[in-house]
């Protein structure tokens, strides 16, 4: 019984770790369907391949951004580093909309903080 329990727990740990290395396939599949025409179908193998590619993309961009931070002796990766990494790795058309998005996000963040302060004051 102990052996089986240990086995199952180790298996669970392995599966959990494996799952954590990839984005959920349901989200990947859903987004793919939204992009393609309604009559188009997607094989399971293609979804799984996309899942891995997307995860590799995250590693690819993160490594580049992380490396930049290390060279500049900073300990925190921020949005600008991600934008820079995207531009460096050949996804320059992503960088501009990303900067706009981050800019908007920061504005919202400030508004949120301001509203919090006002609420506290009241």
């Amino acid at each position: 019984m102990e052996d089986s329990f240990g086995g199952s727990s180790s298996k669970d740990k392995c599966s959990i770790k494996e799952q954590d290395q990839l984005l959920p396939i349901a989200n990947v599949g859903r987004l793919m369907k939204q992009i393609l025409p309604q009559n188009a179908k997607i094989s399971k193998e293609a979804k799984e391949t996309m899942q891995e590619c997307v995860s590799e993309f995250i590693s690819f961009v993160t490594s580049e951004a992380s490396e930049k931070c290390r060279k500049e002796r900073r300990k925190t990766v921020n949005g600008d580093d991600i934008c820079w990494a995207l531009a460096t790795l050949g996804f320059d058309d992503y960088a501009a909309p990303m900067r706009r998005y981050l800019h908007r996000f920061r504005e919202l963040e400030q508004d949120h903080n301001n509203s919090k302060l006002n609420h506290d004051e009241r």
Binding site: V54, I58, V77, P97, M98, Y101
Partner: peptide, 20 residues
């Protein structure tokens, strides 16, 4: 390495666009 909230958000958007 530490990761800021906006970096995670940026990656999320980038991945979305990449997949599209």
């Amino acid at each position: 390495m530490r990761v800021s909230q906006e970096a995670v958000l940026a990656i999320n958007k980038a991945v979305e666009k990449f997949l599209e």
